[in-house]
Amino acid sequence: MMMSAIKHMVVFSLHSGKGDAESERFLQISQEELAAIPGVEQFQIFHQVSPKTDYDYGFSMVFADEQAYASYNDHPVHVRYVQERWKTGVSRFQEIDLVLHQ
């Protein structure tokens, strides 16, 4: 059975808050660095509008398969990003990885 594409999503809040210059810079750098990693498709950034959650932002991206997702996770740009930006800039997050239910 062939697995369908993986939709990788994360919702998060930043130490810097939301809507300020520091937060916008974090989002811009994230897009520049993460979207350029081979295998990343449909990279998108979202901001929260629902009062039902207190996360402020979200990232969404698609990987063709498990191999593409694993390559992304192990890619030096992603590893450095997590260490230098994510762990220092993000106050809390929830990550989900989904495949199409068939």
Rank of each mutant, 00 (worst) to 15 (best):
M1E: 00
M2F: 07
M2Y: 10
M3K: 10
M3V: 12
M3H: 13
S4H: 06
A5T: 08
I6D: 00
K7V: 12
K7F: 11
V11N: 08
V11G: 06
F12H: 01
L14M: 05
S16G: 06
G19A: 05
A21Y: 06
R25H: 14
R25K: 12
R25C: 13
Q28R: 12
I29M: 06
I29E: 13
S30Q: 00
A35W: 01
A35G: 02
A35S: 12
A36R: 04
A36I: 02
E41R: 11
F43M: 05
F43Q: 02
Q44G: 08
F46S: 15
H47E: 14
Q48G: 12
V49A: 12
S50Y: 04
T53Q: 13
D54V: 04
Y55Q: 06
Y55W: 09
D56F: 09
D56C: 14
D56Q: 15
G58H: 01
G58S: 06
F59S: 00
S60Q: 14
M61L: 13
V62M: 15
V62C: 15
F63R: 05
D65R: 09
Q67M: 09
A68T: 06
Y69Q: 15
Y69H: 15
A70D: 14
A70F: 10
S71I: 08
S71P: 07
Y72L: 07
Y72I: 02
Y72Q: 03
N73T: 11
H75P: 01
P76W: 01
H78T: 05
Y81G: 01
V82K: 07
V82Y: 04
Q83P: 04
R85V: 11
K87Y: 09
K87S: 12
V90C: 09
V90K: 02
I96Y: 06
I96G: 11
D97G: 01
L98T: 03
L98G: 07
L98K: 03
V99R: 09
L100H: 12
H101Y: 05
